[in-house]
């Protein structure tokens, strides 16, 4: 019994220490309003209120393909990736709901592959990962110790420099096997792929949420040779027509002209940095051509984005491996 009490006390002490250190390290701009744990769990909450114009929601395809800092540098638009591995629609909905607590985006891009994902299995896995981040925010922000103890209490310090993007330069060219399977999957068909009910219900909730907040929702399907198929394409197209949404499928006719021998990190599953530059440019052009957002370049309220870009470039240079 004595040992059990000792163990519990030890763990409690550890939780307290972790939370104190977490407080010192996580971005603090909105911490008073949303609380430390929630800010750590949803990184977008750490951004200055009403500064994000566009949100890209979805799974790993999103954080591998869209680099908000590249869009900021070239167009002056503020984009944020709200994505986690194998994210399903209920989580997309939740991410949007949380994001609009502090932001008023004009546009939300929704990655479509999550519509077809096995809900039950993924929900469980993601739930525990998120909970871990929730109770130990230090995990996401531990590298901020480098900024020095004097910066810990400064509200402008610890800005997020990737804005949800995950930088990877690794090249693993697509294999013949994957290419063959993809060619087969992309053959024209009239039969659509089934969307699980849970995903469909949450998709409808996302539509309602966007309509209520006057947000333009755009379906996208980012380049992906491993899980995308033509049957998924026609199903999403059907859904887009039904709800009067735009649908950009990057997989049809290789819109981005991705070089699958050089611009993928895992044999065609996801883009690497080279591919992300192309996808990010497309998003920037799309926002510009459709006059959906305005450029914030030279706007004093957005100087932290310039700072973030400098740090981002420095980081890319350092980690170019």
């Amino acid at each position: 019994m004595k040992n059990v009490v000792k163990t519990i006390l030890f763990v409690l002490g550890l939780v307290v220490i972790i939370n104190v250190i977490s407080f010192l390290l996580i971005p603090k701009q909105n911490i008073k309003k949303y609380g430390m744990l929630k800010t750590a769990k949803y990184e977008i909450l750490a951004e200055k209120e009403n500064t994000i114009d566009t949100i890209v929601v979805g799974d790993s395809l999103v954080y591998s393909a869209i680099s908000p800092m590249e869009i900021w540098h070239n167009y002056g638009y503020t984009v944020y990736d709200c994505a986690s591995p194998a994210q399903v629609m209920s989580e997309n909905y939740n991410d949007i709901k949380v994001a609009i607590e502090s932001q008023s985006p004009n546009v939300i891009f929704l990655e479509a592959d999550g519509l077809f994902r096995n809900v039950r299995k993924q929900k469980w896995k993601n739930y525990y990962k998120r909970q871990l981040e929730y109770f130990a925010p230090i995990i996401n922000y531990h590298n901020n110790w480098k900024k020095g103890i004097v910066n810990f209490l400064d509200s402008d310090s610890n800005i997020n420099i990737y804005k949800g993007y995950k930088y990877i330069t690794k090249v693993k060219p697509v294999t013949k096997k994957v290419q063959k399977k993809y060619t087969n999957e992309m053959k024209h068909t009239t039969t659509g792929e089934n969307i699980p009910d849970d995903n469909l219900n949450y998709f409808k909730k996302i539509i309602a949420l966007c309509n209520k907040n006057n947000i333009k929702l755009v379906f996208i399907s980012l380049p992906n040779m491993k899980t995308w198929s033509y049957s998924k394409h026609i199903e999403v197209e059907k859904l887009a027509k039904e709800y009067n949404l735009e649908f950009i499928d990057f997989n049809i006719d290789n819109v981005l002209n991705i070089d699958w021998k050089k611009e993928t990190k895992d044999k065609g599953g996801h883009l690497n940095y080279g591919g992300a530059l192309k996808a990010s440019k497309f998003i920037g052009e799309y926002l510009k051509n459709n006059n959906l957002v305005v450029s914030h370049k030279n706007d004093d309220d957005y100087t932290s984005w310039d700072k973030a870009y400098m740090a981002y470039k420095e980081d890319l240079k350092k980690n170019n491996n």
Partner: peptide
Amino acid sequence: ILFGAFGPG
């Protein structure tokens, strides 16, 4: 946790 070389970079 703090000095472990994990995460971005």
